[in-house]
Write a protein that binds this DNA or RNA. Structure first.
Lengths: 210, 210
DNA sequence: TGTTGTATAATTGTATACAATAATACAGGA
DNA sequence: TCCTGTATTATTGTATACAATTATACAACA
């Protein structure tokens, strides 16, 4: 039994990041450490660590006034898609070149689960599996640089995908597009994987509700 | 007199980042907080903050064994150029659209200084001004997303540019390329700015010594 | 009314003591 | 010799007291 003990600071970071990205804390809202200490039931130290990391991601800004929630603006969203449109295809191409059989099975499982939940109209799980599929590709690209660059961009899009995953037609198109990407990667066809990914990001962009 | 008091944590962060990127701390080396406390003459708190931020940039990795220096590998370098080749042109294009007269003057000054130091074969200052030119363009793109994405990539390349700035021929080519980028931006010609930047990144990539 | 100086309060910044965890060294036995 | 369990040590994780800075409220004055 290997219990990887996850630190309080990491837990706070994940919870806080999620709360910012899902709108629990609104853009422009001003928090402070003691409020977060009270909300989360831990001391200032892990709170500060999490806040500083989120500040580096431009999700928060710390000043003497307090901790301002920056979150993700509509312009940020546009810029994120503009970037992803140009580089996410590269990650898919690299994954097609480098992926192992084991990793391929992991990717397939994420895809199958997404299809399953799409069939059941389970928006929450669809969104999770959709994210997982993309994040696995970042990992399997075999490039820490790609991973570190794309992951924060992808995470910030979360909140805005609510509408599209609840749209059954778009949800099943998304599954099909993932399917195409998966097949290209499984065939180790880098060019096709790249093209399929670019197409998918373009479609996702067009279905975003700001 | 406005003295923006910069925190110890920020100072430690900058110094540590620089020391990792310039090789003062070698890749694979294992540090620990107390050693850094001794080296830097501050308490654990600001050291920890800096270390955690650097961990998030994948320059360090913290475990029970200590603080491992990850730094930037040859593969990282390749991947960074691959990404920059695809997105740095976009930043230049945005800058061409959005830049103000004041900002343009700032960019011009960085360019002129780089030319001045190139003439004097002052490698240290060439490098600094070269970096500054690129970072100003990230800022003037008007996109926090572009800035946050490109800046860490750019910073990581520093160490590997030593050879190219010391090569007089390359140093003056670089100035000319920056000149072309500047002129396109000054003319608010987005397409030309993008093309000039892509060309420049490609040339820089070809002159990197790994 | 507006502005400027000043006292107060709120907030983050820093240092440090203590806790928890994991790595290491080493002894004992198969 | 190799493995395994265990004590020790080294390291990071957490809480908290105190310092420094900045924002804020308000009074005095022009």
């Amino acid at each position: 039994m290997e219990h990887k003990s996850i630190s309080l600071a990491d837990q706070v970071f994940e919870r806080l990041e999620n709360d910012i990205l899902t709108g629990v804390y609104a853009r422009g809202e001003i928090l402070n450490e003691m409020k977060l200490v009270a909300d989360l039931g831990v001391s200032r130290t892990p709170v500060r660590e999490a806040v500083k990391r989120l500040e580096q991601e431009s999700l928060l800004e710390v000043s003497a006034k307090g901790i301002t929630v920056l979150g993700v603006s509509a312009k940020d969203l546009q810029d994120i898609y503009e970037l992803r449109l140009h580089i996410e295809g590269l990650a898919a191409a690299e994954a097609a070149k480098n992926i192992t059989e084991e990793e391929l099975a992991e990717l397939k499982e994420a895809l199958d689960l997404q299809a399953y939940y799409a069939e059941k109209h389970d928006a929450g799980h669809i969104k999770y599996m959709d994210s997982r599929f993309h994040q696995l590709i970042y990992r399997f690209s075999g490039s820490r640089v790609f991973y570190d660059t794309l992951l924060p961009l992808h995470k910030k899009v979360q909140k805005f995908r609510g509408a599209s995953v609840e749209n059954h037609s778009r949800a099943s198109s998304s599954v099909q597009e993932h399917q195409a990407i998966y097949e290209a990667i499984a065939a180790h066809d880098a060019d096709r994987a790249e093209a399929a990914m670019v197409l998918h990001v373009q479609n996702a962009k067009n279905h975003i509700k700001v």
